[in-house]
Computed example of a mutant assay.
Amino acid sequence: MTDSAPRPAATYLDAASGEPLHPAAREVVLAALERGYADPRRLHGPARDARLLLDNARAVVAECLGVRADEVSFTASGTDAVHRGLLGLLRARARSGDRVVLPRVEHSSVLHALEWAGASAETLEVDRLGRADPAALAAAASAPGTALVALQSANHEVGTRQPVAGLVAALRAGGSDVPVFVDARASAGREDLPPGWAVAAASAHLWGGPAGVGVLLVRHGTGWVSPFPADDRVDERTSGFENVPAALAAAAALRAVVAERVEVDARQRRLVDRIRAAAAAVPDTEVVGDPEDRLAHL
Rank of each mutant, 00 (worst) to 15 (best):
G88E: 00
G88W: 04
G88F: 01
L89P: 05
L89R: 14
L90A: 13
L90T: 11
R91F: 15
R91H: 08
R91M: 15
R91P: 13
R91L: 11
A92N: 09
A92L: 11
A92Y: 06
A92E: 06
A92G: 05
A92D: 14
R93C: 01
R93P: 02
R93F: 03
R93A: 03
R93M: 02
R93G: 00
R93K: 05
A94R: 04
A94I: 04
A94F: 04
A94L: 07
A94D: 10
R95H: 12
R95V: 13
R95N: 15
S96P: 03
S96H: 09
S96Y: 07
S96C: 05
S96R: 08
G97A: 01
G97Q: 01
D98P: 02
D98W: 02
D98C: 04
D98G: 15
R99A: 02
R99W: 02
R99G: 02
V100M: 01
V100A: 02
V101T: 02
L102D: 13
L102G: 05
L102K: 08
L102Y: 05
L102Q: 15
P103F: 12
P103Q: 11
P103E: 09
R104C: 06
R104T: 12
R104Q: 12
R104S: 14
R104H: 13
V105M: 11
V105C: 10
V105I: 13
V105D: 05
E106D: 02
E106C: 00
E106Y: 00
E106K: 00
H107S: 07
H107N: 04
H107T: 10
S108A: 08
S108E: 09
S108T: 11
S108W: 13
S109W: 11
S109L: 03
S109H: 03
S109D: 05
S109C: 05
V110M: 01
V110F: 01
V110D: 01
V110A: 00
V110E: 00
V110P: 00
V110R: 00
V110H: 00
V110G: 01
L111R: 11
L111T: 10
L111Y: 07
H112D: 08
H112M: 09
A113R: 02
A113P: 00
A113S: 12
A113F: 03
L114G: 12
L114K: 04
L114T: 11
L114A: 05
E115G: 09
E115I: 09
E115A: 05
E115S: 10
E115C: 10
E115R: 14
W116G: 06
W116M: 10
W116Q: 15
W116T: 10
W116P: 11
W116R: 09
A117Y: 06
A117Q: 15
A117L: 06
G118C: 15
G118L: 14
G118M: 04
G118E: 10
A119E: 12
A119M: 04
A119G: 09
A119K: 04
A119D: 15
S120P: 00
S120F: 06
S120G: 07
S120K: 13
S120M: 13
A121W: 07
A121C: 11
A121T: 12
E122R: 13
E122F: 12
E122I: 06
E122K: 12
T123G: 06
T123V: 14
T123S: 07
T123P: 10
T123E: 06
L124T: 14
L124K: 05
L124S: 10
L124Y: 14
L124C: 13
